[in-house]
Simulated scan of single mutants.
Amino acid sequence: MDDGTWSIGELARRAGVTVKTVRFYSDRGLLPEAARSSGGHRRYGPEALDRLRLIRSLRSLDLPVPDVGRVLGEEAALEDAALEDAVAARLREVGSRLAALRWQEAALQSLRDCAPGERAERLRLVGAMTAPPSTTALARFWRRELPARLPAGLRASIVDAAVPQPPVDPTPAQVLVFARLHALVSDARTPVDHWRSPTGRTMCGRTDDEVRPAVLFEGLGEAFELASAELRARRRPYAGDALDCFVAAHARTYHARDTPVFRQRLRVLLTVTADPVLDRYWELSGELSGPLEPTLGAAQEWLRAALNAEPAPAPAPVAA
């Protein structure tokens, strides 16, 4: 035809695509038809070629066809919000896929480099978590372990601080550590309730209902910050501001005063309530964070060591 329009085959040839591709986008309303021939065949003008090239550019970024349609439905397609939203969504998707591939690569390297006798166990550990791993199980573990009477905001902040985030570009060792963490918190166990005693009494003669765990955790935040600074400076545990803050938080919890006798009772309490599962959790978390980012568990252990380093109070003299 001499009207400046092209057949579907001509448009496909100029665009470097197949007739099937042109028909696909035409059927979905993405390509404008200039007219129909006398025989009812589709005819396209130059604007269809420009539109088809734009579609191919968008699809080369793996934008889904519905998103392409939304972009083309706006004016000034290359500058509008629809394109910006579609590109942002695609970037998030690509980032997630890349993160998954990095974790899969590190997991495979971990399996490749271990001794043959360890391979089956590592495969079980790594295969039990997603790539990249979800932190849902870790957060659930801490919500179960923490006292029920904590305010929601305080509980959430503790969980955030206690749950390590998966590295963006993990090493094989980090993949294995995270897998072991995941296995540790996934094993069924009865939570250790440090706030309920069989006799209904706690340290300093207080009943369970009189103990105030919210007061303790609010006070421990400052103590852990001070202890973390000591850990970063690589200072050995010692009696100082961090320990005083730590003991004061416990004393307020039990409506008691910070005295040598109270400190001795606190030493015993911390020994009795030690939990090997939590100790292992903090050990693994520390392997992920490194010495420059002390975990809450590392700060707790530094403070406990500082308390144990203090001399025990002298026994009261026996009356004659």
Rank of each mutant, 00 (worst) to 15 (best):
D2E: 14
D2M: 13
D3H: 00
W6L: 01
W6Q: 01
I8W: 01
I8M: 06
I8L: 05
R13S: 09
R13T: 05
A15D: 10
T18P: 08
V19T: 11
T21P: 02
V22M: 03
G29L: 00
P32V: 01
R36C: 03
S37A: 10
G40K: 07
R43L: 00
G45C: 06
P46E: 02
L49W: 03
R53Q: 09
L54S: 06
L54D: 09
S57N: 12
L63G: 02
V68Q: 02
A77N: 13
A77D: 08
E79Y: 09
D80R: 15
A81H: 14
L83V: 02
D85N: 13
A86D: 08
A86R: 01
L98M: 02
L98A: 01
R102W: 05
W103M: 05
Q104E: 08
A106K: 02
A107P: 10
L108T: 07
D113E: 08
C114Q: 00
P116F: 09
E118D: 11
A120C: 10
M129R: 09
M129Q: 04
A131K: 09
P133D: 05
S134G: 11
T135M: 08
A139Q: 07
F141M: 01
L154V: 11
I158W: 14
I158T: 14
A161R: 03
V163F: 00
P167I: 06
P167E: 06
T171E: 05
T171A: 08
P172N: 05
A173M: 00
Q174E: 12
R180C: 11
H182N: 12
T190V: 11
T190C: 07
D193N: 03
S197E: 10
S197L: 12
G200S: 06
C204R: 12
G205P: 07
R206K: 08
D208R: 05
D208K: 02
D209L: 13
D209W: 10
A214G: 05
L216G: 04
F217G: 07
F224D: 13
E225R: 12
S228V: 09
L231F: 03
R232G: 00
R232T: 05
A233P: 01
P237C: 02
A242H: 07
F246P: 04
R252D: 14
A256E: 03
P260A: 04
Q264M: 09
R265D: 15
R265N: 13
L266N: 00
L266P: 05
V268G: 12
L269H: 08
V272P: 04
R280Q: 14
R280T: 15
Y281H: 08
W282F: 15
W282V: 13
S285I: 12
G286L: 02
L288I: 11
S289W: 10
L292A: 15
L292V: 14
P294L: 08
L303S: 02
A305S: 15
A306S: 03
L307C: 02
E310D: 07
P315S: 00
A316N: 12
A316M: 13
P317Q: 06
A319L: 15
